[in-house]
C-alpha cells in the first residue's frame, strides 16, 4: 500500500479574487484565460480588457475537471455564469483539454502577452518558473515573443525540484525562501544539477552537521545559478520580470537578481496568473476579430 504522509510540506494555499466594485453586466466583451498547468491551474476573467476575477488551484489528476473547478471558483460570488463569457482561451500543459475553450494557445505566447499587461510594455524578458517547467521568453513592446525556450524535461530549476527539497528537509514550501536567507554566510551552492543527485548531496551535508537553513541556502543558490544558465541561451534584456510559483521564493529570486545584477519588476498582481491573463487578452483580440467577421 502507498504510505500515507502525515504532512505534505509542499502544499500551498489556493485562492480566488474578484473586483467587487466592478459591474460586469453592461460589458461589451467578457473573456477568460484558463491555464491548466501540471501542478496548478488558474483562471482569469477580463471585462472589457480589464482584470475582473481570478482563481488559483492545484491541478487534479484530470485536466477537464481541473479547468472546470478553477473556472467555477473564479466565477464564485460574481453572479456571472460560464455562458456570459464571450471567448475563452485555454493554455498551459493541459490546454487542449479545456472543454469550454474556443481556442488553445501555447503558454509561451500567453506568458509574454500576460507579462506585457502585468508589467507594462517595457518588459523585454520574462522568466516563468512553474511547477514542472521553466520558461525563458524575450518579447517586444506588444508582448509578442521574439525568442523563447522551455525546459520541461528536467526537474532542476522547477517548483517540483524545490518541493522535493522542502519535503526532504520537512520545511513548508512557503518558508523555504526566508529560511534560506537567514544564514550568516552564503554557503557554496549544491554542486549537482540533477535533483536526484542533489538530494544525496544534501543528505551528506546534513550528516556533516549543516543546518537546514544552510542546506536550503545552498540549494536556492544552485537553482538560481541553474536558471541563469538557461537565461544565457536567450540573453537577458531589461526590463526583466519573473512569474510563476518560484517568483514567491525570495531565496531564489534574491540570489538570481544578484547573479544577473538586474532587479526584476514587481507587480501588484499575483505572478502565477500571468499565463491565464495572457490567455484572456488573446481571447479579447480573437472575440473582436470574430465579431468583425460576423458583422
Amino acid at each position: 500500500m502507498t504510505e500515507v504522509k502525515v504532512k505534505e510540506f509542499w502544499r500551498w494555499k489556493e485562492y480566488n479574487w474578484h473586483d467587487e466594485n466592478k459591474d460586469w453586466k453592461g460589458a461589451e466583451t467578457i473573456t477568460a484565460g484558463v491555464d491548466v498547468g501540471s501542478v496548478s491551474s488558474q483562471v482569469v476573467i477580463m471585462v472589457d480588457g480589464e482584470l475582473y476575477a481570478y482563481s488559483n488551484m492545484r491541478t487534479g489528476s484530470d485536466s477537464p475537471d481541473s479547468a472546470r473547478n478553477a473556472m467555477n471558483w473564479a466565477l464564485e460570488d460574481t453572479g456571472m455564469a460560464l455562458d456570459d463569457i464571450h471567448y475563452i482561451v485555454g493554455t498551459g500543459y493541459g490546454r487542449v483539454n479545456v472543454p469550454f475553450a474556443n481556442r488553445a494557445i501555447t503558454e509561451i505566447a500567453c506568458h509574454a502577452r500576460g507579462g506585457n499587461y502585468m508589467y507594462g510594455p517595457s518588459v523585454r524578458t520574462i522568466l516563468d518558473m512553474g511547477g514542472q517547467d521553466c520558461k525563458a521568453i524575450r518579447c517586444d513592446e506588444r508582448g509578442k515573443v521574439t525568442n523563447f525556450l522551455m525546459n520541461d524535461k528536467c526537474a532542476a530549476g522547477t517548483g517540483r525540484g524545490m518541493e522535493v527539497f522542502a519535503d526532504l528537509l520537512a520545511v513548508s514550501i512557503e518558508d523555504v525562501g526566508d529560511l534560506s536567507l537567514d544564514v550568516e554566510e552564503e554557503p557554496e551552492p549544491v554542486s549537482s544539477t540533477c535533483v536526484v543527485f542533489a538530494k544525496s548531496e544534501a543528505t551528506s551535508l546534513l550528516r556533516e552537521g549543516w543546518s537546514k537553513k544552510k542546506v536550503l541556502a545552498a540549494y536556492c543558490s544552485a537553482m538560481a545559478h541553474r536558471v541563469v544558465s538557461l537565461l544565457d541561451r536567450i540573453g537577458v534584456e531589461e526590463d526583466f520580470a519573473i512569474t510563476g510559483g518560484i517568483a514567491k521564493n525570495s531565496g531564489v529570486i534574491k540570489r538570481l537578481e544578484g547573479e544577473l545584477k538586474i532587479n526584476s519588476l514587481k507587480s501588484k498582481h499575483d505572478t502565477q496568473i500571468a499565463g491565464a491573463l495572457g490567455g484572456a487578452l488573446f481571447a479579447k483580440s480573437l472575440a473582436e476579430k470574430q465579431r468583425k467577421k460576423g458583422a
Binding site: C154, R160, V164
Partner: peptide, 15 residues
C-alpha cells in the same frame, strides 16, 4: 525522462 517526474508517473500508474 527525468527521474523526479518519472516517479510521479509511476505513482499515477499505481493509482
Amino acid at each position: 525522462q527525468c527521474a523526479v517526474f518519472a516517479e510521479s508517473e509511476v505513482v499515477s500508474l499505481v493509482h
